[in-house]
């Protein structure tokens, strides 16, 4: 049964830009880099404590969660590498917006209670990039799953690689990026990388989609 399906499933298309594992690796890595950088960006507003960390983790996870849901719906409706490119480019733009928003919010001693201020500041800056990046993994899974009999394996491997990306992002940010670079440059670098990759996928996507989906 599975043999028949495998015969029927299309041959994998090779294009140097279409790398499902590298794609999820990068998106997960970028989420963790942004998450660790986020704590450094909001600590001046509210301090660095358990509550700050909980808010950072909570907002980023919420973004990923909603992103996963939206990404899954989008993926079944219109699975394409071009869509993936658009998502990456949007994530890059959202990350590049973090610093302007920070500059706008920075001086305010608003009337809000501090707890809501933490959640508000954090959400204003980091909800959007997390949400957009959260769309990536279900879309890549949809593009990579070729038949049901192997679905567990494919999805499992994609999760695994995504988590390796998260580990790499965590360790490299904690031990290397934060001690080496200013935190605003880290965010700009992540935004730029995502934007460029997204544009490349968007441009190359037409050719790749023709091969992947036929």
């Amino acid at each position: 049964m599975s043999a028949i399906q495998e015969v029927q499933s299309p041959p994998a298309v090779r294009h140097w830009l279409w790398r499902p594992y590298l794609t999820v690796f990068t998106s997960s890595l970028c989420i963790m880099v942004l998450e660790l950088a986020a704590e450094r960006v909001i600590a001046p507003y509210v301090g660095s404590s358990l509550y700050t960390w909980t808010t950072v983790i909570g907002v980023v996870l919420t973004g990923i969660s909603v992103g996963n849901y939206i990404g899954g719906r989008l993926a079944d409706r219109r699975p394409s590498v071009r869509l993936l490119g658009l998502i990456f480019a949007l994530a890059g733009l959202a990350a590049l917006l973090v610093l302007p928003i920070d500059a706008l919010l920075a001086p305010g001693d608003s009337g809000l209670s501090l707890l809501w201020r933490v959640v508000g500041v954090m959400a204003a800056m980091f909800l959007l990039p997390s949400l957009v990046l959260g769309c990536v993994s279900p879309l890549v899974a949809r593009l990579a799953v070729k038949d049901l009999a192997r679905a567990g394996r494919t999805v499992g491997s994609i999760y695994a690689v995504a988590t390796l990306g998260s580990i790499t992002g965590t360790v490299s940010t904690g031990f290397w990026l934060i001690p080496t670079l200013r935190v605003d440059w880290i965010i700009v670098a992540v935004g730029g990388l995502l934007l460029l990759w997204g544009l490349a996928l968007r441009i190359a996507g037409r050719t790749i989609d023709a091969g992947v989906l036929r």
Partner: peptide, 14 residues
Amino acid sequence: NVDQAGSTVGRIHA
């Protein structure tokens, strides 16, 4: 089935 792969993965992941 495979056509639902994206939404299945997305929903459970969410």
